[in-house]
Design a protein around this nucleic acid. Sequence first.
DNA 1: GTTAGCACTCAACATGCCCAAGTGCTAACA
DNA 2: TGTTAGCACTTGGGCATGTTGAGTGCTAAC
Lengths: 335, 335
Amino acid sequence: MSEPRKLEVLRAIVEDYVHSREPVGSKALVERHHLGVSSATIRNDMAVLEEEGLIAAPHTSAGRIPTDKGYRLFVDRISQVKPLSAAERRAIHSLLEGPDDVDDILERTVRLLSQLTNQVAVVQYPHSRRAVVRHVEFVLLAPQQVLVVLIADTGSVGQKVIDVGFDVGNEALMMLRSRFLGSISGTQVDLLPQVLPSVVALCPPELRGVAQTLAHGLQVLSGSSREERILMAGTANLARSNVDFPLSIGPVLEALEEQVVMLRLLSDMGDDPRGVTVSIGRENPYDGLAEASVVATGYGSGAKVGILGPTRMDYPTTMAAVRAVARYLSRILGD
Amino acid sequence: MSEPRKLEVLRAIVEDYVHSREPVGSKALVERHHLGVSSATIRNDMAVLEEEGLIAAPHTSAGRIPTDKGYRLFVDRISQVKPLSAAERRAIHSLLEGPDDVDDILERTVRLLSQLTNQVAVVQYPHSRRAVVRHVEFVLLAPQQVLVVLIADTGSVGQKVIDVGFDVGNEALMMLRSRFLGSISGTQVDLLPQVLPSVVALCPPELRGVAQTLAHGLQVLSGSSREERILMAGTANLARSNVDFPLSIGPVLEALEEQVVMLRLLSDMGDDPRGVTVSIGRENPYDGLAEASVVATGYGSGAKVGILGPTRMDYPTTMAAVRAVARYLSRILGD
DNA sequence: GTTAGCACTCAACATGCCCAAGTGCTAACA
DNA sequence: TGTTAGCACTTGGGCATGTTGAGTGCTAAC
């Protein structure tokens, strides 16, 4: 049997199954696609494909459906990314307009992506490695409670309430603010851990404890809070696309609610900014997503954007959409 | 027929149906509850209840299930709020611990409430009517682009990127900041619309346009951004609690994703801080929630917290949980 | 290596049947 | 007047049975 035709058959099965949601048989296959052979030949090919674990039959006299492994091969070797339609291009373009508020942009991005793909869209807050400290603010909320605000030149604002455990007065706090501001304004955000200790060291001894606490707060703000959040949209698509074909939706919703799970999932995927990574069914580290696939890619300086849907999804189109959106996102946030 | 018994029968039907998820018949009713009469009598009572539209039969020879109207009467006149269990009390108490960061607290609140009720929990950001301006910051991100940050003494931070459409220099911007800060620091946030114009009027003529734009930005920040957001958790419960009984989950997820819908829904409900408001099935203004109920109440100074679940829910327990959580929330955010 | 033909399998559907649950009604009863 | 027992009636669900059609695997011929 010819290797090219085997792949061709697999491709046809995947496409038909994704389209019809029903096991596809040998006869239907030769009718819908003009492979130049008869159904009997296809049957032989299918037997081989099944033996190799690429497709499976739900029961004896049913057609075949692709396995996770089958999808994997399909994605890796067969599918060629489909070009987007003009309407889709236009939709993505319109993202470029409007204010450059990061939150706004991300919000609109997930909405767009979920509509484009009819799946759940997920985006991670952008990494701010190159971000530079623009401003620091300490606000005394209560006798021992300080609100710490860190503003970067990218427009990202981090905030955190801290219990300083010491009755610092407002004047002292303002003084500390000036010192911090003077020392770290203009510093790269991810260099803060190296810079902050020296600032603390230069503070008057009686305030050093407070300064230490505040510095720690700033450090936390700089490191984690932002990039470890994700935004999502389109969870309703889960219910819609599985109306007759029950992907058990509960575990998937659970996974989506656990930001930690999603973050790990995204991080574990390759972040080749040009390629799109796909994680299929049981390849996913999280059990609840055993019937789901994730299509994601990096954007900007390493954060991820992607979608989550049933393993039975239109990979070429979805991958194209994710890649296109990621590119635009990189461009918008680039400057 | 005695009016008290009629109510008693309705109560029994609601309770049994909520518990078993199956239509409840006259015989089962007299067995499970010790109403002092026979099943025949109950049948007569049920016929009356059905005539009044409080219960309905899915088909001729099935038991009865409560209608929306039946649940309404149940909630209004019959159910008495159940006390919480010790474990539940403890769980709520533990909310008191930890840092007083508003975001953190709300986050934990929705999680707790969704676990407590096994429903979807929703909370609106607290109203900051009494909040006072603590700090204002303008940050020049790009030649014509300014990040406006408004910090209130409650610890709430609002941010927004604004296109000022004029090449304002950094010194001029700092000058404007000082003016704004001097004039509105300490002002109640919701009074900003009245105060800001006079600040603008006092600015040098060549900067008045910019000042106007910035003032508008501040106003938007003060008014909307915070209180018009909601947080939610427990969407996975939707799938779980309806595993055999298909409340169509799609439309509900759609409603939940549309913050606008949820906000209107919550706002339209009474905000008597002591009572708990319930909106049942088709009473909801949004069609997608025709099979869902919302149990909500106000907390703090007028914001809402509540849950969303199928009409067939344990109202007494749910109402108790919502009320208790709202009280604790008010207490924590009170000072 | 491909094809036609054929026996075989099995889910899906349909049909008919019975049963249990539940109702509504009527007549008797307190 | 309200309650009860009894009974005929309705109907969905379960079950056994039969039928159909899509699809397979195998074999023999090309």
